[in-house]
Design a protein around this nucleic acid. Structure first.
Length: 972
RNA sequence: GCCCUGGUGGUGAAAUUGGUAGACACGCAGGACUUAAAAUCCUGUUGCCAGCAAUGGCAGUGCGGGUUCAAGUCCCGCCUGGGGCACCA
């Protein structure tokens, strides 16, 4: 016998049980149905291309940019879109204010992770990159951004990197004129050489190189090109890299730990390799000065300043006692010249082998070997330890001719200044420690200020034992010393920078190929007439050939070196290195202005219209990399006449990180029992209530944050996630709940604390998600993600919906006049949001919306006069929601094109104010007064007040302070 | 070591020029509606003290001083979280 089956025609019960979040679908259909609304408007926006913009120059422009992402395989987590949401709100707001807003998005798609993944799995980087981009695009679209995707760029697209290569050629064909402080074409440098040689423009790569016009003309063509290479902004030079013999490849700094490769632990050594470099050091002063014109945070500017590291002082030449060679040093304290007791060279300094005496050879060699073994980390960790070796050689003091011993030590860096110092132990702590260690007598040049135990580093007081500088203060003494050095022809004033030229070669596959071909080891840019390559081979782009293997090429070359028929051209061999990750990102903001231009990287008319990025939003991690390179490229392109502005990013906004909130549960291994956190603190009580908390060691296990509601664990979901705990016991607390602990840390897959925006959007909608991310706090601070808190914002939107729509489909707004209070709520909100959006204070905008809706709901506002403008100001934050209501008001165009309403002061002025009245600074009562009431009348009224009289205790106040519109204070 | 930032309820935070500290939310507690749940609404929620209660008092923005009629906000000295740089001559 069988039971009759009951068939439900409605999907109700099924929906109910299937809903993973326990939300009932039925109520949602009746109420604010975000899912339906969001799908509908996403499609409508796409069909009507509402985000596609033109270069119509009749409108004022606004360029709002996000740092484009590297599309990693992990996809977006909830922290990534924070900055994008902020910039999207700003962009939409600006558009409503009448601007033509450029708000694009693209992908920084070249890079090591894709290549690493290819090495491990054999999947071609272009395949994984394309897949990741598609996924990113879907996740971004899900959130409802107003990006104009028709302008998107991808750095690994040949149509894009064609122009990256073209810009490289411009940098190769340019030099930096120090007198004019700008980049100029190399052709102009050649004319200078032909007329006057290089007397007025020394070579940055070889300051001592001198030739006149006649010598220049007599140089061979090859020689001339060698000379030009010492000037080019993109140039070829020998630079040290980490070389790992076992892996047969070059490694990045952070892939080498303690002189061993991070992967495999193979030994690595510093090795000189011929590499492309960018002469960013020539731009140091411009990069420093330009910061003054930028609206960036002081911290960000400071980071760039310290990276550029300008210091002023003098260059001094020291003659040697027994040699023709001279040692050049840089010092910031030329005034201490007479306190020099010894000199120190970097162990790698080129003069070391030449001047070391026979007796000291062994000691010097031993010390050099010791330094070579030392990793950067070891050197950094043992800063205080004094090491070094004596070369046996002596220099002569430039004025006193006193012999000065010459040492080598690792505390002098080869890469900074001249790689040599004059050591003044009386005035420098490190020199002092060194002198003590090697028992070098110390000359006191500071009189009683130096008492022998520590260096006197202060820049005050008078000099002594310093010949012609005696009795002088530091400042004048510096000038006097430099003048004397210049008069004697053995020194000059000099500015020094910490900034180093940037390595531009990578021995990798997944990057832009160089548009360079070598003839007899001489590099030629594609398109140079001298190269004589057939047209089809010399035009850009030089496309990245397909490879089957990503193994390094021979002798540390990149994988491209393995592809013989690509490398070999009729005119010579191609460059096999590729460009670094920052190449494509150094100019992408320019391409967005004119993304489909086939003839130029960007049309001058387009860049003249769009100009600088008005607001650039991104993380602080790019403070000195990307942001410095992009500034330099912009300056070079501007100097060469391709742009009319030389700073790319006018205002910079740094968003904070959204951290993960990891959850832990307590586990007793022996008893295989999980114990609710709430029981751990009060084991006795739990025992008393019949529960037995097992004694023994408690292990804290990470649990996926998505299985936890607040701190309450979903046990069934946990068991499904970790079947090995299927049979474990769970000790619940008195409420029958199982609770976890939480710890805030970085959001990452391995910590099981990643929250995917897709899940949040599915559960609450994109509008709720957008508003919640903003509501979390100020954009620039880091804060943990808390899914629980999103309820508040979601409730707000539902409440807002009920102000417009009742019972599913009844439209509430009517043409009835609004009360003064309703208008005040509205205009206060317009003012607050407009002002706060301008200063990127979005969290307080959301609060203001909530306040406004609370007030309007309480007043049961139905007035169209209030409710319609409200939709417009809400649109930047909750675009789908606002678009739906906007159209229900009978509009046929997007709310994006509605004008942002203006607030009117008349609605904001209140005619009376409830003043706090304080006695001796402590608020005791509140009394209402008309705002235009006379101070004397207010004073009289206050003194009659019952509460005030009580606190005065019969005394007469000494002073009555009345601040109009603020407060009243009585001083007794 | 140097530079830049921050420190406010159980939690995220607000207070934009020195003027009622804790807006707006989350969470929690209690209540209404409901057969029940969801949803929604209402009340309370910095701590301590007094009171049946309305309420009142005191303390309170990392710590210690100071300026001021008035300090989260300004000044001086510490403690501490986060980020950056680091033998830079």
């Amino acid at each position: 016998m069988s039971c009759p089956t009951i068939f439900y025609p409605s999907a109700k019960p099924i929906l109910y049980f299937c809903s993973p979040f326990g939300l009932d679908a039925e109520a949602n259909i009746m109420e604010y149905n975000f899912n339906e609304i969001e799908q509908k408007w996403k499609k409508w926006w796409k069909d009507n291309s509402v985000y596609t913009i033109t270069n119509d120059t009749s409108k004022p422009k606004c360029y709002v940019l996000d740092m484009f992402p590297y599309p990693s395989g992990a996809g977006l987590h909830v922290g990534h879109p924070l900055g994008y949401i902020a910039s999207d709100i700003y962009a939409r707001y600006k558009r409503q204010c009448g601007f033509q807003v450029l708000h694009p998005m693209g992908f920084d798609a070249f890079g090591l992770p894709a290549e690493q993944y290819a090495l491990e799995t054999g999947q071609h980087p272009s395949v994984t990159t394309e897949k990741n981009i598609k996924r990113y695009r879907e996740q971004l679209d899900n959130i409802g951004f107003s990006f104009d995707w028709s302008r998107s760029v991808t750095t690994s697209d040949p149509e894009y990197y064609r122009w990256t290569q073209w810009i490289f050629v411009q940098l190769f064909e340019a030099w930096f004129d120090r007198t004019k402080q700008k980049a100029r074409p190399v052709t102009e440098l050649i004319s200078i050489f032909e007329q006057e040689g290089n007397a007025n423009c020394p070579a940055p790569s070889d300051e001592r190189l001198r030739f006149d016009a006649q010598q220049w003309r007599q140089f061979s063509l090859e020689m001339q090109r060698d000379v030009l290479m010492k000037y080019r902004i993109a140039y070829l030079d020998y630079a040290e890299v980490w070389w790992c013999e076992a892996l047969g490849t070059v490694l990045a700094n952070d892939e080498v730990i303690n002189g061993q490769s991070e992967r495999g632990g193979h030994p690595c050594v510093r090795k000189k390799m011929r590499q492309w470099m960018l002469r960013i050091t020539e731009f140091a002063e411009r990069l420093l000065q330009g910061l003054e014109t930028l609206d960036w945070t002081e911290g960000m500017k400071e980071m760039q300043r310290s990276w550029i590291g300008k210091s002023t002082g003098a260059e001094v030449q020291f003659a040697l006692a027994n040699s023709e060679e001279i040692i050049e040093v840089f010092t910031t304290r030329p005034d201490t010249l007479f306190g020099v007791d010894f000199m120190v060279l970097a162990p790698e300094h080129e003069l070391v082998p030449k001047l070391t005496t026979k007796e000291q050879e062994a000691a010097v060699a031993e010390y050099q070997a010791y330094v070579e073994r030392r990793s950067e980390r070891e050197r950094m960790a043992e800063v205080k330890q004094v090491t070094g070796a004596f070369t046996g050689a002596y220099a002569l003091h430039p004025f006193s001719k006193k012999p000065i011993p010459i040492y080598i030590s690792e505390y002098v860096l080869a890469g900074y200044g001249t790689g040599a110092i004059m050591a003044v132990p009386a005035g420098d702590e490190r020199d002092h420690a060194f002198a003590r260690h090697f028992q070098i007598p110390i000359t006191n040049i500071f009189g009683s200020n130096y008492e022998g135990s520590a260096a006197y580093t202060d820049k005050s007081g008078l000099l002594s034992a310093s010949d012609f500088l005696n009795g002088m203060e530091v400042g004048p003494a510096m000038d006097a010393a430099i003048e004397a050095l210049e008069a004697a022809g053995i020194g000059r004033r000099r500015v020094n920078y910490k900034l180093r030229d940037a390595g531009f070669s990578r021995q990798r596959y997944w990057g832009e190929p160089f548009p360079i071909v070598y003839q007899n080891d001489q590099p030629f840019a594609l398109g140079e007439p001298a190269l004589n390559l057939p047209e089809e081979l010399s035009s850009l782009p030089v496309t990245l050939p397909h490879v089957e293997s990503y193994r390094p090429g021979p002798e540390g070359q990149g994988p491209l070196a393995n592809i013989e028929d690509w490398v070999e051209t009729p005119a010579g061999r191609r460059e096999t290195n590729t460009m670094p990750g920052y190449a494509g990102s150094s100019w992408y903001f320019l391409r967005y202005m004119d993304p489909h231009n086939q003839a130029q990287f960007v049309d001058k008319a387009a860049s003249d219209y769009w100009q600088q990025v008005d607001v650039y939003v991104g993380g602080t991690e790019h403070a000195v990399g990307h942001l410095l390179y992009a500034r330099m490229w912009t300056k070079a392109l501007a100097d060469l006449g391709f742009l009319s502005f030389d700073e790319p990013f006018k205002k910079l906004v740094n968003q904070g990180m959204i951290q993960g909130s990891s959850r832990y549960i307590a586990w007793n291994r022996e008893a295989n029992t999980f114990i609710s956190q709430s029981l751990l603190g009060k084991a006795q009580q739990a025992a008393g209530s019949g529960l037995e908390v097992p004694s023994g060691v408690i292990t804290e296990l990470r649990v996926d944050v998505n299985l936890v509601d607040g701190v309450e664990l979903n046990i069934e979901a946990f068991k499904a996630w970790r079947p090995e705990y299927q049979t474990a016991q769970f000790l619940l607390d008195e409420q029958g709940k199982f609770t976890c602990t939480s710890v805030v840390e970085k959001m990452s897959k391995s910590k099981y604390n990643v929250v995917n925006p897709d899940d949040i959007v599915a559960q609450y909608g994109a509008d709720t998600f957008r508003m919640y991310e903003m509501f979390l706090g100020p954009i620039e601070v880091s804060k943990p993600w808390d899914t629980q808190g999103i309820e508040g914002v979601h409730r707000f939107l539902k409440k807002l919906w009920r102000l417009y729509v009742a019972d599913g489909d009844t439209w509430l707004p009517e043409d009835e006049p609004a009360t003064e209070q309703m208008l005040r709520s509205l205009h206060k909100t317009i003012k607050k949001t407009a002002e706060d959006i301008e200063r990127f204070g979005f969290n307080t905008c959301v609060s203001q919306f909530m306040i406004c809706i609370n007030e309007l709901s309480a007043a049961q506002c139905k007035s169209r006069e209030v409710l319609e403008p409200l939709v417009v100001i809400l649109a930047p934050f909750a675009p789908h929601f606002a678009e739906e209501l906007w159209h229900r008001f009978g509009h046929y165009t997007s709310v994006l094109d509605a004008a942002f309403p203006r607030w009117e002061e008349q609605y904001l002025v209140e005619n009376s104010k409830l003043y706090p009245v304080a006695i001796n600074g402590k608020t005791r009562t509140e009394i209402a007064f008309a705002l235009d009431a006379a101070p004397s009348a207010i004073e009289a009224a206050v003194l009659q007040d019952e509460v005030v009289l009580k606190w005065l205790e019969g005394k007469t106040p000494k002073k009555v302070i009345y601040v109009k519109g603020r407060m009243i204070n009585l001083v007794v």
